[in-house]
Design a protein around this nucleic acid. Structure first.
Length: 589
RNA sequence: GCCUCGGUAGCUCAGUUGGAUAGAGCAACGGUUUUCUAAACCGUGGGUCAGGGGUUCGAAUCCCUUCCGGGGUACCA
């Protein structure tokens, strides 16, 4: 639409003798209730024309109609100049761009970006909050890839620490040699079970101690179980063979379990980092910061950074005993990742509870003089809440990822069979279809919401399959594929003699927006942008589908071919767009 | 207390660099199938954009302020 901006500037130049910057010409889509497709808001121009808005709009409208062939008519409503573009203009774009095989492909931009997501703890299975993280991370990575980046997906696994030792200790004490094999339990669930047992036993001990007269705080520190877990952690850090091999065994179970969940969610990674390898990193950077005068040492030997000038607080970066805190490792790990991949940008997909942490981390790296610090971005997303509030694993109010996936697939099976649409499908196809629909509903439900907003999930209300949902878009795609097959669609197009209905024009305009939607969604780190666009497109298509006479029975000719082309491109865009959300669209459903 | 993110229809959510009478879906009610898949389409009702003030020709959008909710503010991660 740049040509309209340029033409309008020229109009102002010739009519009023003013050379205005491009941003004075504010274009927007014409609202449905008025005639035209593009609207110029004339208010900002009035100061140059020295006339009232209506007269200014009239002047410019007349000029544009006379001098720009694509503009065939105009009308003025208040301060808005609505422009009517020619049918040929839209058809030309459709033929030259939208119909091309390369439509929606964006050239590489030569930049590399890392997306770190998932980053689970290895002491319990994944829940709905992790699902949101995984889907967001995966989708943002796909969107960046599609918009021209070289993308590296990374998973930084939190595989060590006191929480891991808790599961290990409980298993050692009460496990009786239980394994995934002999219990039939998925590995991550088995380990999670012992984490819960630890917590229950620990609480009992605290209760006993407080009843014996100790304060809550004392009891929490003195309980034999926690003491033992801490000893185990020390042994782990010392490389104790027995502890290490138990740790390896149990983490192995968890990885097997996570692998299944990841495969079910359809997410993947190019590189795994493990905190057991990175937790000692960062101390060099602390020294570097001391040398540069960015950090300072207190009398007790602890190292701090003063961020009060930036509106934050003083922040500890190394304990008095010389051991690391969370941010110490993160400084070191950021350096490691940068050394490994030399990326231009690095995105951390982490919940908004860590907003402050990342603000501090990025600020520190910047103060350390890391040139790549500007490219760091915290993709902060809101928590998934239940109607009762936050999910709490200790209170058993978590929505388990594996359970939820299974339920969604089961619901998809029931709904599909009620509709009786798959009676003639082979069994294997049915199962694949139910998976795709169930996961499509789940993924779309989670991704259509703007990441930074918190998300409400009611386990008692099943996720919809109708309306603004994944299955709606999947259905639209399946219907298109079926239609193209019945019509024996062949590529090819003619420009001449085509008439455009209002809905067809809507389709052309919507379709042409697709490449820009990829870029916008990637730049905003927001799969929701893409999700909402695809819904709008599918909705418009269904309207189009209902309005036109049955294509299959229409006689051959340019108009029929034109409509089939709309179908084909819409199907392609829905398929490609949904794949950027990690959603598979079926050929039939 | 301080910092930060939210608050839009009964519910779940869109709303672009500030633009026209704030839009969808669900739920409710009514209609559409001898026509390519009715997981669809068409229609009806439903709003103090949390409240107040300000900037502007124009504010859901920007600024100030109050209220409500989430998160953070650890020598936890």
């Amino acid at each position: 639409m740049d040509f309209i901006v340029e033409a309008a500037r020229k109009a102002i130049q010739e009519l009023y003798g003013a050379d205005v910057p491009a941003d004075v010409i504010s274009l927007q889509e014409t609202r449905k209730e008025f005639e035209g497709q593009v609207t110029i808001v004339v208010f900002p121009i009035v100061r140059y024309s020295k006339k009232n808005p209506a007269e200014t709009a009239e002047d410019i409208g007349a000029y544009l109609q006379a001098n720009v062939p694509e503009i065939t008519a105009y009308n003025v409503v208040k301060g808005f100049l609505n422009l009517v573009l020619s049918t040929e203009y839209f058809l030309n774009i459709f033929h030259a761009h939208t119909l091309a095989a390369s439509f929606g492909e964006i050239a590489p931009n030569g930049k590399r970006v890392m997306v770190e997501y998932s980053s689970p703890n290895t002491n319990k299975p994944l829940h709905l909050g992790h699902v949101r993280n995984n889907l967001l991370g995966y989708s943002v990575a796909e969107l960046l890839k599609a918009s021209g980046y070289d993308v590296i997906k990374v998973n930084l696994v939190n595989d060590r620490g006191i929480h891991i030792c808790k599961s290990m200790l409980a298993w050692q004490k009460w496990g009786n040699g239980e394994t995934p094999e002999n219990s039939g339990l998925k590995g991550d669930h088995l380990v999670g079970k012992y984490y819960v047992i630890f917590d229950a036993e620990y609480k009992k001990e605290i209760k006993t101690l407080t009843e014996a007269g100790q304060s809550e705080e004392q009891a929490k520190k003195a309980a034999p179980l926690i003491v033992e877990a801490q000893q185990m952690l020390q042994k782990w850090e010392a490389g104790d063979q027995e502890v290490i091999s138990l740790w390896e065994k149990m983490n192995g179970w968890v990885y097997d379990g996570f692998g299944i969940t990841y495969a079910n969610l359809g997410v993947d990674f190019d590189r795994f980092y493990y905190e057991s390898n990175t937790y000692l990193l960062g101390k060099d950077n602390i020294q570097e910061g001391l040398d540069k005068g960015v950090f300072f040492k207190k009398e007790d030997g602890s190292v701090w950074i003063d961020l009060t000038a930036d509106g934050l607080d003083e922040k500890l970066v190394l304990r008095a005993d010389g051991t690391s805190v969370y941010i110490t490792q993160d400084i070191g790990t950021a350096q490691l990742k940068q050394d490994d991949y030399q990326m231009d940008e690095s995105i951390y997909v982490v919940g908004n509870e860590q907003d402050y942490h990342f603000k501090v981390l990025f600020l520190i790296l910047d103060k350390l003089g890391k040139p790549w610090a500007k490219g760091l971005y915290h993709l902060s997303y809101g928590m998934v809440d239940l109607p009762s509030g936050k999910m709490k694993s200790r209170e058993g109010t978590v929505v388990d990822a594996d359970d939820l996936i299974a339920e969604m697939i089961e619901t998809a099976r029931q709904k599909t069979e009620e509709l009786g649409k798959t009676n003639d499908f082979p069994e294997a196809d049915k199962n694949e279809l139910y998976r795709n629909i169930g996961l499509g509903a789940l993924k779309y439900f989670l991704l259509k919401v703007e990441p930074k907003k918190r998300l409400l999930f009611d386990p008692n209300e099943s996720i919809d399959f109708q309306g603004h949902t994944g299955p709606f878009i999947q259905y639209t795609h399946a219907r298109i594929r079926s239609l193209l097959a019945k019509a024996e669609y062949q590529p090819g197009a003619e420009l001449a003699g085509i008439e455009l209905s209002e809905t067809e024009l809507d389709m052309l305009m919507l379709l042409s927006k697709y490449p820009q939607q990829i870029v916008d969604a990637a730049a905003a780190h927001s799969p929701a942008v893409m999700a909402n666009y695809l819904f709008e497109l599918a909705k418009a298509f269904n309207k189009f589908y209902h309005e036109i006479p049955p294509i299959v029975k229409t006689e051959a000719g340019p108009q029929k071919q034109f409509r089939l082309n709309i179908c084909r491109v819409t199907g392609d865009v829905l398929k490609k767009g949904m794949s950027l959300l990690g959603i598979v669209v079926p050929e039939r459903m």
